[in-house]
Design a protein around this nucleic acid. Sequence first.
DNA 1: TCCTTAGTTGAATGATCGTTCCAAAACGGG
DNA 2: CCCGTTTTGGAACGATCATTCAACTAAGGA
Lengths: 188, 188
Amino acid sequence: MARPREFDTAQALDAAVQVFREHGFEGTSAAMLTKRMRIGRQSLYDTFGDKWKLYLSAVSRYSTLETSAHISTLNSKENAFEGIRAVVERVVAEARMPCLGVNSICEFGVRQTELSAQHALAAERLRVPFVKRIREAQLAGDLTSELEPDAVVDFLVTTFSGIRIAARGGADDGKLKALGEIALRALR
Amino acid sequence: MARPREFDTAQALDAAVQVFREHGFEGTSAAMLTKRMRIGRQSLYDTFGDKWKLYLSAVSRYSTLETSAHISTLNSKENAFEGIRAVVERVVAEARMPCLGVNSICEFGVRQTELSAQHALAAERLRVPFVKRIREAQLAGDLTSELEPDAVVDFLVTTFSGIRIAARGGADDGKLKALGEIALRALR
DNA sequence: TCCTTAGTTGAATGATCGTTCCAAAACGGG
DNA sequence: CCCGTTTTGGAACGATCATTCAACTAAGGA
């Protein structure tokens, strides 16, 4: 068996994620993709099917990684509230890079079933550990007990979207930090 | 002077706004526009220049109308806090229709100067009356005085974006209402 | 009725798009 | 060195894109 240089599929997919984050699906051409992925045009089609399938793969990869990052940040602190704060701070810190989740929702709404399914999946995966830590923080008295944990998750996720839009619109870091703080304040 | 049926420019522009709200700039074709605007292709180019200029006109018109609607809702109540709540409720009620402001920011970020300029303009036009009413509500004790009015405006606008994204992603009305309430609660 | 003006529409332009076919190139194991 | 596998890139296809030209229709005022 002969094996010339095989390219790293995951690495190529990561590059595709970057392009889609920046330019969306419609704004991205096959040429832009092959250039950034550093693979030939034919390899792209052989490996990922077509542009739409590649987009779905990119969204899937992105939301898997992003969700995992959220969860591990959430659990990175002993104290539950501090874990939640750390997630907020992470979102603020990374807000300058466009979010593929927000972008894909903006671009397609609920028109593409496969896309919506992925969003729902990621949301659910996020919800479970978040609810857990929110309850914890409520018991510790760091979060108000007036709010349902589920509602708190929804509010946090919504705030994340808002912060990301603000960042994409050019808001400076100070403003983004302030937004995160007010959001946390809302839950006390 | 002879005058055959002239079409209503503002009405046509409103139709264009609708299409762009739903499909974005890249996702909208000239054919989609002429169909919904109910005008001939050539009339489109004669009247609005080209697709990009039409898009800018649409964004401009949308943000002017939307800003005005926000302001008049804000001032529709005697009580300042009730005015602010009314704005939140209006955003929630209309969130099912995509927001052209959010969409254009998502699609272009800060790459298009003319677009960013329009966003900045609308934001400033909104800020002034909002700050006024926020101060009023703070003096009345309905809003916390711990927060800078400017920060409160930023937070509200950010929350609006978040709610609109949530709605575009398929969140039901109950969830959207809850999000609005938590946001208001944050400011007490 | 005829002219002027406004709007429409078919045809064409040139660009770019996604995608496929295919031949050549690159490369590692025998 | 050659074989087999993987990747590449030119060429081409058909579709669609934004946009323009020019001939057409429609309608109100003279």
